[in-house]
């Protein structure tokens, strides 16, 4: 699904965000991406998403080189990827339904398709009853679930979450993680960048650790950090 070959990303201001990173993520995997702030997690995600291009190295997503990819093919790459963020990034002036439907409109879905599909994903995240509410009327956890529904609505093969539980309490975080697990069980590859040590340590999934731009650890059934 995702392959990084010796990928480096240097910013013009001299920051070496990623240095010689090599990693492979298979289809259907559930992967935690851990590391201190500034370790390069966000850069890695931006590269997968082709929001930025690497300074060196080669990246394949879904079997296609994103470096050789033409600009006009980038939207099609992104339609395979669902994104979830720490700050939810919902549109405050649109209802839950409209927020999710927006992602479908953007890729040219028809009204009938939208009417059928949106309640489906809202049900999946347990928010069918909240469809006509606005984001500000919802709790943080609920807002994040709307964001997840939006990420899923176009049936992506890969779901990427950047600190999805960073703004949530522990109980709510677990709830959100459970949704990610459910989504993963249905066949979607899930990549979560996180600081939630307890969650990572409990789930014992694959963990890729970054530190100062380098992949320092990559283990299956891993933990957040080894005792030093």
């Amino acid at each position: 699904m995702i392959q990084f070959f010796n990928v480096s990303k240097f910013y013009p201001n001299g920051v070496k965000a990623l240095v010689g990173a090599t990693l492979h993520i298979e289809k259907g995997e559930f992967v935690f991406l851990v590391g201190p702030s500034g370790a390069g997690k966000s850069t890695l995600i931006k590269l997968i998403f082709r929001e930025e291009l690497p300074t060196k190295g080669q990246i394949y997503v879904g079997g296609r080189s994103i470096i050789r990819m033409k600009r006009r093919d980038v939207p099609h790459l992104r339609r395979q990827i669902g994104m979830v963020f720490q700050d939810f990034r919902l549109l405050p002036d649109r209802t839950v339904f409209e927020n999710v439907a927006f992602a479908m409109q953007v890729v040219g879905a028809g009204p009938q398709e939208i009417k059928r599909r949106v309640p489906e994903v809202l049900e999946l995240v347990g928010l069918k009853e909240r469809a006509q509410m606005y984001p500000r009327q919802l709790s943080g956890g609920e807002q994040q679930r709307v964001a997840i529904a939006r990420a899923l609505v176009n049936k992506p093969t890969l779901l990427i979450a950047d600190e999805p539980t960073g703004n949530l309490d522990m109980d709510t975080s677990w709830e959100i993680i459970n949704y990610f697990q459910e989504i993963n069980r249905r066949g979607t590859t899930v990549l979560i960048a996180t600081h939630a040590r307890e969650i990572v340590d409990t789930l014992r999934q694959r963990v890729i650790a970054l530190d100062r731009g380098r992949v320092v650890r990559d283990e299956h059934q891993g933990v957040y950090a080894h005792a030093t």
Binding site: F49, P75, L77, I81, R89, V106, V107
Partner: peptide, 16 residues
Amino acid sequence: RREISIMKWVGATDWF
């Protein structure tokens, strides 16, 4: 800008 970036993330084409 928020809408624009969301559009970008869900794969809207440039012209869209």
